[in-house]
């Protein structure tokens, strides 16, 4: 399971759409730890990109 697949899976979770085929593939993984870590990392990325966007909007207007 390469790390990009994990990112792709977590990204699918964020937008809330995943196909059955990819799900079966994701659940072949031996351990949920990479998914959880990448999930938390993506939440942090989500937070910081939103903070950046918000500051940019305030600066813009």
């Amino acid at each position: 399971m390469n790390i990009w697949k994990v990112f792709k899976a977590v990204f699918s979770a964020f937008i809330g759409v995943q196909s059955e085929k990819n799900r079966l593939e994701d659940f072949q993984a031996n351990s949920p730890i990479p998914f959880i870590l990448v999930g938390i990392l993506m939440v942090l990325i989500f937070i910081f990109s939103l903070v950046y966007l918000v500051n940019f909007m305030v600066y813009l207007m």
């Binding site: 937008i15 809330g16 759409v17 995943q18 196909s19 059955e20």
Partner: peptide, 12 residues
């Protein structure tokens, strides 16, 4: 039928 990723992506 029980999934259609394209439709789901559109309505998201």
């Amino acid at each position: 039928f029980h999934e259609n990723t394209t439709v789901e992506l559109i309505w998201t």
